[in-house]
Amino acid sequence: METTARDFNQRSSQILAAAARGETITVTKNGVAVARVVPMGDDDVPPYPTDPMGDIQLPDLGLPDLTDEEIEDALKGMGS
């Protein structure tokens, strides 16, 4: 299947549904192929998470622990 970028913009839901059914869609702009929408297979999904997970470990910078009130006081007037 082939579609224009404009048509893809207007009918993306239907075009993505066609890809989900197994069709490969070529998207053209000014008659030139610029993208291809292909169906995803089970092998296309990585076997590991691709987004951050768990606690973030920040380095100890040796800064004092401040209360919320101390932080608010320090920031008053900044950015105004």
Rank of each mutant, 00 (worst) to 15 (best):
L66S: 01
L16R: 11
V38W: 00
A18H: 11
D73L: 14
A5M: 12
V37Y: 00
A35P: 00
I56F: 13
V34P: 01
D44K: 04
D44P: 08
P49A: 13
G22P: 09
F8G: 12
G41W: 05
A18G: 05
L61V: 00
D44S: 12
I15A: 08
N9E: 15
G41Q: 07
P39L: 04
R6Y: 13
P46F: 06
A5W: 13
G54V: 01
R36C: 03
I56C: 06
R21C: 02
D44M: 09
M78Y: 15
L61Y: 02
G54L: 06
P39E: 02
D55G: 09
T24R: 14
G62V: 04
M53E: 09
P47M: 00
G22N: 08
P46I: 02
A18M: 14
G79E: 13
D68Y: 13
M1A: 13
S12E: 08
G77T: 06
P64N: 03
E2C: 07
D44C: 08
Q10T: 14
A19T: 09
G54Y: 07
G22M: 11
T28S: 07
K76L: 15
Q57K: 09
D44R: 04
V27P: 07
M40Y: 04
D51C: 09
S12H: 14
G77F: 04
V38H: 03
P52V: 10
D60C: 01
I71Q: 11
D65K: 12
P39G: 04
D60R: 01
D44A: 12
N30R: 05
A74M: 14
A33N: 02
N9W: 14
Q14L: 13
F8M: 14
T67D: 08
D65Q: 10
G62D: 01
M78I: 14
P47G: 01
A74C: 07
I15N: 09
D55A: 08
A5K: 12
A20I: 01
N30Y: 02
P59E: 10
G54R: 06
R21G: 05
M1V: 03
D73F: 11
